[in-house]
């Protein structure tokens, strides 16, 4: 019995290390462009999906955060470089305008910096 528990525990630990620390492919997606306006939705539920969003340079962009998570952890989204700290719990969809005048990367995170996402602006 003891040995079985030990084996299961070791297996569990190995799984945790592999699952959380191993390298896993991240989902990336491109924004939809129509009428010289690009729009994309990021679903907030235990993280951001897609966690990496690619926008086209020079096309005005609106990124909508769809809040599917009701816990306090993800209630805010913070874009450090843009000085944006938005409360996502006020409504289901919160739109944030992202400047696309130059090719760059905007990292964003939840208020406690536990969850991360990225928006890439490219040509």
């Amino acid at each position: 019995m003891q040995l079985v528990v030990l084996a299961i525990s070791l297996g569990l630990i190995a799984f945790i290390i592999w699952w959380f620390f191993g390298s896993h492919e991240e989902k990336t997606s491109d924004a939809q462009i129509s009428d010289n306006q690009q729009e994309s939705t990021i679903v907030v539920d235990g993280g951001y999906s897609p966690s990496t969003l690619v926008l086209k340079k020079g096309v005005p962009a609106k990124v909508k955060f769809q809040m599917n998570d009701s816990t306090a952890c993800l209630s805010h989204v913070v874009f450090e470089k843009l000085g944006i700290d938005k409360d996502l719990t006020k409504q289901k969809m919160t739109a944030i305008e992202i400047p696309t005048d130059q090719a760059t990367e905007f990292d964003y995170a939840c208020g406690m910096n536990m969850f991360h996402g990225k928006i890439i602006v490219k040509d």
């Binding site: 191993g22 896993h24 235990g46 998570d69 952890c73 993800l74």
Partner: peptide, 14 residues
């Protein structure tokens, strides 16, 4: 629910 969604993203938090 949130923890499970985070888990699927290989994330863990509070």
């Amino acid at each position: 629910k949130s923890a499970w969604a985070a888990f699927k993203h290989h994330n863990a938090n509070m």
